[in-house]
Structure formats: structure tokens, C-alpha cells
């Protein structure tokens, strides 16, 4: 599966469009990581625990999107965008969407 943020795939032509595919995941924060983050919040800087947590979650969202695209028999997803929104206190939704296409 080729993923791009462009409207096509360089060096290839799109032969078929399958429409929008998306993947999302809602993740809650981890209490242990929250306590660590609270301590780190005193001195500032990167909250590594959260960075990893969200990276992992985003990967999952992308994987779900890929799964959807492969069910449609697509071999690439173009024009991918990400969005994040906090759903409730301490939980965030990570969302990825794009257009599934077949390229040759």
C-alpha cells in the first residue's frame, strides 16, 4: 500500500478511484503516564510518554484506513490528512482519511 499526501502517486497513473477511506481510534491517557507527565509539567519540555502513546494510536488509525482500502482492492491511498480532537477529558480521537485508488 502506497501512502501519499499528494493527489496522486509520483511515477504512476491512477486507473481507478474507490472513494474515501478512513481510520480512527479513541485513546484514553494512562494514569501512570499522567502522573509522570504531571511531574514533567513542572519543568516543561517534551512529554515522551504522550508522544509515544499518540504515535502508536496514530499508527493504529492509519492501519485501519489501510485495512479498509485493501478490502476495496486498492493499492494506494492518496491525499491523506490527519485530524485530532479531544473527545472527553483525558481522551483524544486520532483520525486519518484519504482516497483509496488503484495505480499502475
Amino acid at each position: 500500500m502506497i501512502l501519499t499526501t499528494l493527489e496522486g502517486v509520483p511515477g504512476k497513473t491512477i486507473t481507478k478511484h474507490f472513494g474515501l477511506v478512513q481510520g480512527s481510534t479513541v485513546r484514553a491517557k494512562h494514569l501512570g503516564k499522567d502522573i509522570m507527565a504531571g511531574l514533567k509539567n513542572l519543568v516543561g519540555g517534551e512529554l515522551q510518554g504522550y508522544t509515544e502513546l499518540l504515535q502508536e494510536a496514530r499508527k493504529e488509525a492509519v492501519n485501519r484506513m489501510i485495512q479498509q482500502a485493501s478490502q476495496l482492492d486498492a493499492n494506494a491511498i492518496v491525499n491523506i490528512r490527519f485530524a485530532t480532537s479531544s473527545v472527553t477529558q483525558g481522551a483524544a480521537e486520532l483520525f486519518a482519511y484519504g482516497t483509496a485508488v488503484r495505480v499502475e
Partner: peptide, 21 residues
């Protein structure tokens, strides 16, 4: 126009930053 290339891949960089007291 999509440039001439043979391969393409998506890259994501992320960071969570916090303020200090």
C-alpha cells in the same frame, strides 16, 4: 503537477510538548 519520481512514502513526525510551572 506531480514530480517525476519512482517511489513515494508518507512520513509523520510528532511531539507532545508541555509548559513548565
Amino acid at each position: 503537477e506531480i514530480p517525476e519520481a519512482t517511489n513515494a512514502a508518507m512520513f509523520v513526525g510528532s511531539v507532545v510538548v508541555s509548559a513548565d510551572y
